[in-house]
């Protein structure tokens, strides 16, 4: 019966079948992905997010108001009020003067969530190739579902990391955190030298712009000029300009003026066949397995490296390091800093 149908009709049925499959299984936007996400939005998630927000305010000594809670959780002021009264009745927060403070129980609950969140971010950064724009969102979902024991196990597998990839300290299993030492980049003065210790991953648009500038925790910055409208600074020798509003999302730790200012380093990818150089370092954008692999192959600061020959298609390039020849793709060589040797072979 089917085979006697006009081929035009069977074709249409076939195409709509394909479209239906795509609509159901498409990653991120498909029906299944949506259903999976929708199931996560429960009351408990909201509650835990609120606790996290309170903790963040407390950690950074900002007073915490109803409006800011509603804003950060994307809920109405009414829902926020209901949420707060629920948190109070559970004994997780209390009203002190005119701002809310966490109780001890609330603080340890919040620390548990933060620990899971940051461990998961560390895991995504080191053990997967999920892009850095997606770490925070993924961890925001995972933090409510991964048990503390599972997170502890994961942390142990990764060698108990103490910082998340944004530079935030991961609370220890006993709920300890180091004191907050940073200040926003926007608070520096002209001529200050500092190290980026944290880049706030929310709001997303601002984070995306900071990432696009190539800034990362561990980078040295030197403030060249600061006005009401803009802050001009050198990061690893590269000049950057940000609005103070944006710069406030970067936390820095002031360094004494004695620390040497890092010069702008050349990249390994700029080396031509036959040229040699000394490796100065690896960018923090090269992380996890990839970083370990490169270091295992001898790409460590101080090592001598020579560009040997290009592949037939131009990329990758073969480099000679420690007496062996290894091929490195351009995208990797862009993350390796070098200093050219004076004597050319």
């Amino acid at each position: 019966m089917l085979m006697t149908a006009h081929p035009g009709i069977t074709l249409l049925i076939g195409i709509s079948g394909l479209l239906a499959l795509a609509a159901a299984f498409w990653p991120q936007k498909g029906l299944l992905a949506r259903i999976a996400r929708g199931r996560l939005n429960t009351q408990r998630v909201l509650l835990e997010d609120a606790l996290k927000f309170f903790f963040d305010c407390e950690y950074k000594n900002i007073s915490c108001r109803l409006n800011s809670i509603a804003g950060s959780l994307h809920i109405s002021a009414d829902s926020a009020t209901r949420l707060l009264s629920r948190l109070r009745s559970m004994g997780l927060i209390q009203l002190q003067e005119d701002s809310f403070r966490l109780t001890d129980a609330g603080r340890s609950y919040a620390l548990r969530i933060i620990r899971v969140h940051r461990i998961w971010e560390r895991y995504l950064a080191d053990e997967t190739s999920i892009g850095q724009m997606e770490w925070h969102g993924e961890a925001d979902l995972k933090e409510h579902h991964l048990s503390l024991e599972a997170a502890d196990q994961l942390a142990a597998q990764m060698g108990n990391p103490v910082f998340d990839p944004h530079g935030d300290p991961i609370p220890s299993a006993r709920g300890e955190l180091p004191a907050y030492t940073g200040q926003p980049l926007s608070a520096l003065k002209e001529g200050d030298i500092a190290r980026i210790i944290h880049i706030e991953d929310e709001p997303r648009a601002i984070y995306a712009q900071i990432v696009a500038l190539g800034l990362y925790p561990g980078m040295q910055v030197y403030v060249m000029d600061i006005t009401e409208e803009r802050i001009q600074f050198a990061a690893n020798g590269e000049e950057c300009v940000l609005a103070p509003f944006f710069a406030a999302n970067i936390t820095v730790e002031k360094l004494s003026a004695r620390e040497p200012i890092q010069q702008k380093a050349e990249l390994l990818s700029s080396l031509k066949a036959g040229e040699s150089a000394t490796i100065k370092g690896l960018s923090a954008n090269c992380r996890g397995q990839q970083r370990r692999r490169l270091m295992d192959l001898g790409i460590v600061p101080g090592a001598q490296i020579t560009a040997s020959f290009r592949s037939a298609s131009g990329d990758p390039v073969a480099y000679r390091v420690l007496g062996t020849t290894i091929a490195i793709r351009k995208s990797q060589a862009d993350n390796i800093f070098i200093e050219r040797s004076d004597a050319k072979p």
Partner: peptide, 13 residues
């Protein structure tokens, strides 16, 4: 997309 990736290729003598 999310699986770990680490390119390396040695060119032995």
């Amino acid at each position: 997309k999310g699986e770990a990736s680490a390119f390396s290729l040695e060119l032995p003598p």
